[in-house]
Every structure is written in structure tokens, then in C-alpha cells.
Design a protein around this nucleic acid. Structure first.
Lengths: 338, 338
DNA sequence: AAAAAAGCCGATAACGTTCTCGATAACTTG
DNA sequence: CAAGTTATCGAGAACGTTATCGGCTTTTTT
């Protein structure tokens, strides 16, 4: 099957016996074209089923209508929902999103950023994998004047617009809820050192303890990976100590699920013996038994807002960077009921 | 921040005092250029950090290096994993993927297909939402010579390459496993009429019953949506009958989860009283208690293979359509143990 | 040693669109 | 009615790259 030659504005011009310049103006609803010819052009372009060639428009306008999205992975509930949010806004504005997955590898992130063909991209959305201190690969891109917006895993060292959920408050609210539910010795199993979301959630955890005059036990703050297996192993470490906590706040629901599974294997009765709280509101948290108390992250809104912000940066180069923090909400479930 | 003018082959040519034609040939490692000048060009292009302008190359080559992916949604485990597979192959070959989500709406699918700017797309990957009998919107696209590959939810009426998991065998194996585990009255809660995966899985279910001389009860085959809520409601319907089944095979794990939750509310002991089997191996199936026996769909491979097939169609227009069926595997869990 | 071939390179057109500028005709203005 | 405005349009360049073709050297062939 030979691919048909697409119709161009030249075809329309020839058909109507006018110049391509006039056709171009008519289609873009631009100046200097009479009502009558505009209508004739639009009708003809509909008849011929004309579609603009984005390579051509992009070449002259120096745009691509492409947005690069760089993130750790896509198969988690949180990130796939964020992408759905990004996609809805991008699509509405005629932009395509181009996915780049770092697979939680800082090296891959650098390679991806370095190999980006900036001339084919109007802007970039990033959720960091790499340590946020050394984001030279992103700073280089920004120095070239390419608009960039960070979401979720952001870096303080980068001066750019940022969109995130209320990590500090979410952590605070969950831990406070655990305390009010009667738990006094609350451990925190969290993510790798570096990302600002970790700092914020740890701070929320610490401040909640402080507010209720509970002492902080450094042994009970464990940094490891974001996944379910790490949740299991963190619990093993905690249970190797002489002092065991009576509640666990996990940095996300995947780790909380891992913790619950491990505790169940240890015949610990969740709720009665040990309370558990998570973060995100992954469907897993609602399905597992017992269901897990969590703070719902507004993933869809994070996606929508970071895309809208990026579009503003793209459309006006002097749009000033701003930080958007979106509230979530506490969802109480069985895992925090004594 | 003004966007910097990107370096072009003109810059390289001027710097080296040669023509742009030579630079172009050198970079593409093409004919008619000496070893020495090629090296000088490559070195200079690295020094200046040159990146090709895809709008320009696309304009002259009539390519975009873009692949459109049209699918029902992205937030499910299956589809997000398929996308990860597609993305890995596309990225490796220098292609971008452009997501289009139909949100399970046939109307949206038609609109998306109709509005696709075909001149900006080299090929299309589709998993259907619409009824597969009336796929005129896709046939029109194919008539224009645009390569198209279907995956998962395919349509028999379309003559194109197709990639899917072994739906028939998967259903057969799960139902056979239920039978061998001692269940005799097996219901099937499945998806909407139309998609071929539904037919295949229903046939697998029916043939397994037939093989073991179990009678088919039409009341026990319920068509509804793909989601968890439908799973719950299907069970309600089943339990409204005088004859209740002693096992349920669900078209996917989300419905199986819904069924399990509903059965638990009805105080039915899953496994002992009623066996449950699903399809996909969604993480939910492993986490829920009791965990659900299922057939693991090779989502990543489906994504990889359909993308590879599409690339072959793109590269040679006389590549003949083929159908690829990828095997999964039975995963036995608690929900099918008496 | 002449003829043919091969190697290497540059000039130019082309891809489809937009933008700048100038041209023409119609319309105002005083 | 002359001069200036306004409305409408077309010609041509430009965007960055590749493809075609022709020209000049150098090498190979006979």
C-alpha cells in the first residue's frame, strides 16, 4: 500500500486559483483576507480533508508542539495518573507528550536529558530520579532557554516552576491521626535521601511527633527504596531492634503494603497491635486486608497543573516561575483502628 | 530567558569552510565523503553540540518519527505496562510515542482518529474501545496507507497486524484449573459484547466446560464492563438466581477483585465455598486476601512486539500483516484452594 | 599516454508553511 | 478630484535538511 500524498495548501490554492499565502492566512484566520475568500478556502480545505503539516509549521515557527515528560516509571498508579492529567491538558492545547522513562536510574536520566533534541521540543516536564543536588543536566537545558517544570520529585537547587502535593501536611496529618488513635511509638519508613518529597514528609512526621511531645527515635527512621519489597525489609530491620514501634508511617502506599504483608507474616495484628499509615491512595491500599489509612495525593491535578504551567512558560518567555502545592486528604481505613 | 538559536549544519559548514551538502552526508555517514572530512565534521558537530532538527528532516523525508498510540486508558496495570513496552522499543529506534486516551468511549475514539494529523505520524498502534464491527474510522486511515497495528482489543474485520496474549488458552487453563480443583458450577463474568478478547476468553471458558462434560448455564455468563464495580454487581446478579455457582471466572483481575470483595461481604468463604479465577496478573490479585488465581498476561511483550511489528510496516510498505499471539502462564493462588 | 572510472565536493532545488514586502484596487477625505 | 487610506492579495524569501546533478581531481585501466 503506497502512502497517499497528503493535500497541502498548494492544492487548495491551485484549486481556487489563488496564492498559497492567501490560503495560509485564511486558514489561520489571520489578517488581510476577505470574508468571502476565507470561506471558500475553509470549505475547500474541508472538502479535501486538509491537515497542516506540523513539520513545515514547526520549521518556520521554531516549534514542535511536543512536550517531553521525563519520569521514573509509568506502571505505578501515581505516575500513570499524573500522565493522564498531563495528557488531557496537552491534548486540549494541541500538544503531544513524549514519554521518557528513567527507570529510577540517575544515569539514564542524565543520558535522556543529554540526548534530548531540544529543537524538537517546546518544553519539558520532569520528576527527578537523580540526586537533586547535581542536576547539571537539567540546568544546562534551562540555560538554553527551554521551559522546564518539575513535579512531585522536585529539586530546590533548580529555579523553575514546581508542582507537588502537600507532602509536609499529608505526612503530618497521617501521623497526627495515628497519634490520636492511640499509637505512641511511630516509626517512619521512607525513601532514598535526596528528593524534596522525602524531606517534606520526614519533616511532617517529625513535627507531628513534636507537637504531641513524643520523642524521636533515630532507629525508627529508615531510608530505602520506594517499592514494596523495601517496605518488607524495613519492617524486618525495625523488628530486629530491641524497641519495636507500635505504628508505622510509610512514605507511600507501596511500602505500606509491603509493611502490612510482612507484619501479617509475623502474626502481628494490624490495627490492634501495630497501626499503619501510607501516602498516595494507591488502589492497593483500599484492597489489601486490612485496608490502609493513607493521604490521597492529587495525582491528576498535579499532572494537569504542571502541564498548564509549562504551557504558560512556553507561550510567554517572561512568565515567572511559581510553585504550586495541591492539597490532598486523609483517608482513614482499618489499619489505624485499635 | 530568550531561547538560544540551535546550531545547524550551516554553522558546521561555515566553521569548516565546506558546503552544507557535505556536512549532511558526513553526519548521515553517507556516500561521497572522505574519511578525513567526515571526522572533522563529526568532531565539530560534537564540539558545537549539534542536534538535527526533526522538523527539517521530517519535511524532506516525509517522516515524523512519531507513533500514535490510541488506547482506552493508561491508569490500569495492563495498559501502563503495555505502554512501557512500546516506549522501550520506540525509544531504541528513535521514535516518539504520542498518547491518545479514549477513556473507554467509542465516540472519542472516532474523534481522535478523525482528527489525527496523518502527515505528522508514521504509524498507529490501537487497542479498541469501539465495537469492532464498525471500525470505519480506522479503515479510512489504513486506506491512506498509514501503517496500523492492533493490540489486545483487536477487530477481525480489520486486515492489519495484530498482537495479543493467548486469550483463549488463558481462559481455558484457568477454568480447567478450577474444575480440577473440584469446582463444578463455574460462572463467567466477562466484558462488553464486541471485542475479540471477550469472544476468545468466553470460548476458552466454554471449551473447558465441554471438555469435562459440564453443562453450560446461560444465566451464569454475564456481560458487563471491565471494572471492579461491575465485578461486584455481576456477583449480585448471580446470587439473585436460584442456582448459585461454586466458582467464578472473571475476564480480568479487576472484576475478580470486585467479585471477591462482594463475596466477602456476603460472608462467602472464598476457596472453600466459592473458587475465583481472574486474568492479567494485576498486582491487586496478589495483594488481596485471599489472593486470586489468575493467568498472567504478557503485557510488556505485547507492547514490545506490536511496536516492533509497526516499525517493520513503517520501514517496508510491502511487509505483510501478521498476527502474533503471546503465551502467558497460570498463577495459582489462594482463591482456588478448597 | 589517452581514456575511463572513481572519489570527493558544491550549487541548487525541493519539502510545506509562514512572513515580509510590495502591488493593486477600492474607498475616504478635504 | 487629487491625495491619502484601507482592504485584499501575490511574489519571494526563509526555516533546516536531503537529493540530484554536475564538475573537478585523482586513480585505474588498456
Amino acid at each position: 500500500m503506497k502512502r497517499a500524498r497528503p493535500v497541502t495548501i498548494k492544492d487548495i490554492a491551485r484549486e481556487l486559483n489563488i496564492s498559497v499565502a492567501t490560503v495560509s492566512r485564511a486558514i489561520r484566520n489571520s489578517y488581510d483576507v476577505s470574508e468571502e475568500t476565507r470561506n471558500r478556502v475553509l470549505e475547500m480545505s474541508k472538502d479535501l480533508n486538509y491537515r497542516p503539516n506540523f513539520n513545515a509549521t514547526g520549521l518556520v515557527n521554531h516549534t514542535s508542539h511536543n512536550i517531553a515528560v521525563i519520569l521514573p516509571h509509568i506502571t505505578s498508579y501515581y505516575f500513570s495518573t499524573v500522565i493522564a492529567g498531563i495528557q488531557s491538558i496537552a491534548y486540549k492545547n494541541g500538544y503531544n507528550i513524549i514519554l521518557h522513562l528513567t527507570d529510577e536510574s540517575a544515569e539514564r536520566e542524565v543520558i535522556i536529558a543529554r540526548d534530548l533534541s531540544l529543537s524538537s521540543i517546546d518544553g519539558i516536564l520532569v520528576s527527578l530520579t537523580s540526586k537533586p543536588e547535581k542536576c547539571d543536566h537539567l540546568k544546562e537545558i534551562m540555560n538554553q532557554g527551554v521551559p522546564l517544570v518539575l513535579f512531585d520529585r522536585v529539586a530546590e537547587s533548580i529555579h523553575a516552576s514546581k508542582v507537588m502535593q502537600n507532602d509536609y501536611e499529608g505526612a503530618f496529618v497521617v501521623v497526627e491521626h495515628l497519634i490520636k488513635s492511640g499509637y505512641k511509638n511511630i516509626a517512619h519508613i521512607t525513601g532514598p535521601h535526596g528528593p524534596s518529597i522525602i524531606k517534606h514528609r520526614v519533616n511532617g512526621y517529625l513535627d507531628a511527633l513534636k507537637k504531641y511531645n513524643l520523642t524521636v527515635n533515630e532507629e525508627w527512621i529508615i531510608h530505602s527504596e520506594f517499592n514494596m519489597l523495601s517496605g518488607r525489609e524495613d519492617v524486618k530491620k525495625l523488628w530486629n531492634n530491641k524497641n519495636k514501634p507500635d505504628a508505622i508511617f510509610a512514605v507511600n502506599d507501596k511500602k505500606a503494603v509491603g509493611a502490612v504483608l510482612e507484619l501479617k507474616e509475623k502474626k502481628v495484628v494490624i490495627g490492634k497491635d501495630v497501626g499503619v499509615g501510607g501516602f498516595t491512595n494507591d488502589p492497593l491500599a483500599a484492597i489489601i486486608s486490612p485496608s490502609i489509612t493513607t493521604y490521597e495525593a492529587p495525582a491528576l491535578e498535579v499532572g494537569q497543573q504542571c502541564c498548564e504551567l509549562l504551557l504558560k512558560h512556553i507561550k510567554s518567555s517572561n512568565f515567572q516561575p511559581r510553585e504550586v502545592v495541591i492539597k490532598g486528604r486523609l483517608i482513614v481505613r482499618e489499619s489505624s483502628k485499635k
